[in-house]
Structures are given as C-alpha cells and as structure tokens.
Amino acid sequence: MSEPTNENAPENKEPAPNPPQETPEEKGPEPGEFGKLLAENGLTVDPLGPDAVGVEMIGVAPDKVLDVAKFLRDSQITKMDFLMSVSGVDHKEYRESVYHVYSVDTHKSICIKVKADNDHVPSLMPVWPAADWHEREAFDLFGIIYDGHPDLRRLLMPVDWIGYPLRKDYKQDDPRLVWNER
C-alpha cells in the first residue's frame, strides 16, 4: 500500500511549479518615468528598462526621434538641455545611434537609442547643436549617415580614408597603406 502512494506523490507535485515560471518572461520592461510622460503626450516609445546605473533607456524609431528630442528639451517637466554624448553601435545587422541626454536643472538623464534605417538617422543638431562633432565622429568611424547634418565630413580619420574602421566587418585593404603593414 505504501508503494503506490509514493509513486503518485511526485507526479502530483511536478506540474505545480511550471505555471509561475512562464509569466515573467513574456513581459517586457516597464516604461519608466520619461516613457510614461512621452506616452501621455502622444509619443510612443519602446521602453528598454534602466541601464546599469539606473538611467532610463528608450528605443525610438528614426522618424520620431526629432519630435521626442524636441519634447524632452522643451517640456518644463523634463528640461533636457544638455546632450552628453552620441555613440555609434554596430550590431552587424544594423547600426544604432545612442544619445545620452542630461538635465542641468533636474539632474536627471535619459538614454535614447535609435536603430538606423539602412544606416540613415535624422541629425539631432536642430535640437542640440552639441551633436555636431559627435555625429561627425560616429559617421567617421561607423558610417552612420545623419540626415540634415549641415557638414557631415570625416572628423578623426584622414579625408581620403576608405571604409569605416570601427565596424565589425572592417577590413583594411587600402593599397595606399601597404607600406605600413606589419
């Protein structure tokens, strides 16, 4: 009599822990403070959660990034008046432009990530003029083309350089540089 009860008991217990494991994986990150504010004002963004130091990250489509940037700068709640950095990221399939913006007034910052549409991203120079050289650098090293930038030239590499050196698939095969081979 004791044997069948022992066999039945683990069978009954097995299905019990399964349902709670499935539910948290399906949910994406919750929209943070700025994500909610943007959604209230009719600007839908992709919440990406906080980064390692707790700065809220949002993903924005290239055609909406100018509106979002203008809102973040002009809104009396956010007052994002200081563009800290523009970075380029190479994900192999696509390139990404990442903006870190800070508010001198509220001491809060936000990270805006824009997936480049076939390497094209609108320039944020009309909103934050500081983007000028940052975007030129990202163009120089990653080949991200910032539409609307008034002077998109190479910044760090020589003017006649071929290719974008920080891309993952970059291979230096410029015949003019044979003399500098290892």
């Binding site: 015949p175 003019r176 044979v178 003399w179 081979e181």
Partner: peptide, 15 residues
Amino acid sequence: CKFRHERADERERAR
C-alpha cells in the same frame, strides 16, 4: 606622401 604599389599580389602572398 602618396604611395603606389605595383606588386600588391606578391606582397599579399608573402603575408
């Protein structure tokens, strides 16, 4: 400072 190579394939093979 302009450079021109005429035997790039040879160098490539050596490398």
